[in-house]
Simulated scan of single mutants.
Amino acid sequence: MKRTLSVASTATALLLTGLITASPASASDADRKSCINAGSVCVWQNSNYSGSRFAAGGSWGGTCANSFTYGHSVANGWPATIRFYSKDGCSGSYFDIRAHDYSSSTPFAVHSFKLLSS
């Protein structure tokens, strides 16, 4: 019993001094992973996968899709590169996200996207 208290006291002291940090997995990371595992393309309103989310799932054919949420973070669960655009209709500036990759902060508000390659 005395030994258990000593270990608990040591762990508490280390936690309080910052030598051990307790950081639970954030909901945003779980949401990003869920999107990728589902094979979807997701756009979140805010950076770090927060705010409203738009998702295009397996029934999306890869053609240009306007996002209902203009977003600042994205995840690509497709087995191909997706091109994200700054304007509706897949126009304007763009950047690419490879298969099963993501960006927690995009260079501009994403308005649309399409399949680039397979």
Score class of each variant (00 low, 15 high):
residue 72 H to G: 01
residue 81 T to H: 03
residue 4 T to V: 07
residue 102 Y to V: 00
residue 52 S to G: 06
residue 71 G to K: 04
residue 4 T to R: 09
residue 115 L to F: 06
residue 48 N to Q: 09
residue 52 S to T: 03
residue 60 W to M: 10
residue 86 S to W: 06
residue 98 R to K: 03
residue 32 R to P: 01
residue 116 L to E: 05
residue 16 L to S: 13
residue 19 L to H: 08
residue 36 I to Q: 10
residue 41 V to K: 04
residue 65 A to Q: 15
residue 56 A to K: 00
residue 99 A to R: 13
residue 91 S to D: 11
residue 39 G to H: 13
residue 80 A to K: 04
residue 74 V to W: 06
residue 44 W to Y: 15
residue 33 K to T: 13
residue 18 G to N: 13
residue 29 D to G: 13
residue 106 T to C: 08
residue 84 F to A: 00
residue 61 G to I: 11
residue 51 G to I: 02
residue 117 S to N: 15
residue 15 L to A: 10
residue 112 S to K: 12
residue 38 A to P: 07
residue 20 I to L: 15
residue 2 K to E: 14
residue 82 I to P: 01
residue 84 F to N: 03
residue 31 D to N: 15
residue 106 T to S: 04
residue 62 G to V: 09
residue 103 S to A: 14
residue 98 R to G: 12
residue 6 S to T: 05
residue 23 S to H: 15
residue 75 A to M: 14
residue 117 S to F: 05
residue 84 F to Y: 13
residue 102 Y to P: 01
residue 34 S to A: 15
residue 68 F to M: 05
residue 102 Y to A: 15
residue 97 I to F: 03
residue 2 K to R: 14
residue 94 Y to L: 02
residue 26 S to F: 09
residue 15 L to T: 06
residue 110 V to E: 07
residue 16 L to H: 02
residue 46 N to V: 05
residue 15 L to E: 06
residue 43 V to H: 05
residue 24 P to W: 10
residue 111 H to P: 07
residue 94 Y to W: 14
residue 116 L to R: 10
residue 60 W to N: 02
residue 57 G to R: 09
residue 81 T to R: 14
residue 67 S to E: 07
residue 42 C to R: 01
residue 114 K to A: 06
residue 48 N to P: 01
residue 79 P to L: 11
residue 92 G to E: 06
residue 2 K to P: 01
residue 36 I to M: 12
residue 110 V to T: 04
residue 108 F to P: 14
residue 37 N to R: 05
residue 1 M to A: 15
residue 97 I to L: 14
residue 61 G to F: 08
residue 17 T to W: 00
residue 46 N to C: 01
residue 104 S to G: 04
residue 61 G to E: 02
residue 13 A to H: 01
residue 6 S to A: 12
residue 116 L to T: 02
residue 82 I to G: 00
residue 85 Y to F: 15
residue 11 A to I: 15
residue 7 V to Q: 00
residue 68 F to H: 14
residue 107 P to D: 15
residue 4 T to C: 06
residue 32 R to W: 12
residue 85 Y to R: 12
residue 108 F to R: 10
residue 79 P to R: 08
residue 38 A to W: 03
residue 72 H to K: 15
residue 35 C to F: 04
residue 60 W to L: 07
residue 66 N to C: 05
residue 46 N to D: 14
residue 35 C to E: 01
residue 21 T to F: 05
residue 86 S to G: 11
residue 83 R to M: 09
residue 114 K to F: 01
residue 32 R to N: 02
residue 28 S to F: 03
residue 11 A to G: 04
residue 48 N to M: 11
residue 110 V to L: 01
residue 21 T to W: 00
residue 13 A to E: 06
residue 27 A to G: 13
residue 112 S to I: 05
residue 87 K to S: 15
residue 50 S to P: 00
residue 90 C to F: 09
residue 85 Y to C: 05
